[in-house]
């Protein structure tokens, strides 16, 4: 798809194995967030998105969400004046009794860690991340798109947090696309990795294969990373 003539994504094909984590890495401007936006329906695009074989490419974003596509954003997109619980409850697109929603939201927040019950705008970045991640799990999505969830967190914190998300997701067979800059993080958590560079797929494979691929090393890493 193109932004005003700049081809942001060109013939990109992404396969996400069910129940697994697919990492999406690449230098800045490679089109990773754009791809997530296309999948979640925020950008128009050529080509299709298939969810369990069913085509959802022509469907509006909010419908895709109701079909089980959830996501987070590079900067946590939250309602700052509301407490964490309300923010998490927003994640459930279906009509449910408030009490049930509240209970489930509280459960998820618990898993994510100890978050103070103050308006979310007053929380630390890490806590805001936790709230957004909890929200993304509310609908028991079959596909979760994480857009640089580790940004602003230290490595161990990120591993713990995303690990928690994946553990919850495993309960309902959730698949995940993890966009990240921290290649080590992706190598730890993902079973498959796709490398994007300037809008095209550069290489696909296991973390080990990808990090040792010379094309990837030159285009992106600049140094060797032991896996």
């Amino acid at each position: 798809m193109s932004f005003r003539g700049v081809r942001a994504l060109d013939s990109v094909s992404l396969q996400v194995a069910e129940g697994q984590v697919t990492g999406l890495i690449g230098p800045n401007g490679a089109g990773k967030s754009t791809l997530l936006n296309c999948i979640s329906g925020l950008h128009r695009h050529e080509g299709d998105v298939l969810l369990h074989g069913r085509s959802i490419g022509g469907i509006a974003a909010f419908r895709r969400a109701r079909l089980g596509v959830a996501r987070t954003f590079q900067t946590p997109a939250l309602l700052d004046h509301l407490p964490p619980l309300d923010n998490v409850m927003l994640g459930e697109p279906r009509r449910r009794p408030e009490r049930q929603l509240r209970a489930r939201a509280a459960e998820l927040l618990d898993v994510m860690g100890d978050v103070a019950d103050r308006p979310v705008g007053a929380l630390s970045h890490g806590d805001r991340r936790r709230v957004e991640l909890a929200r993304s799990l509310m609908s028991r999505p079959c596909l979760l798109l994480l857009d640089e969830p580790a940004a602003g967190l230290d490595h161990d914190e990120a591993v713990e947090l995303i690990g928690a998300v994946l553990r919850v997701g495993a309960e309902f067979g959730m698949s995940c696309v993890l966009v990240e800059h921290d290649v080590e993080l992706v190598s730890t958590l993902a079973q498959a990795v796709v490398v994007l560079d300037t809008g095209r797929v550069l290489c696909v494979g296991t973390p080990a294969e990808v990090t040792n691929d010379p094309r990837v090393v030159t285009a992106y890493l600049g140094q060797e990373v032991g896996v």
Binding site: F3, R4, S33, T34, N37, L42, F73
Partner: peptide, 8 residues
């Protein structure tokens, strides 16, 4: 005008 494009 050109359509506003916001990169989210």
């Amino acid at each position: 005008g050109r359509a506003a494009v916001v990169r989210s």
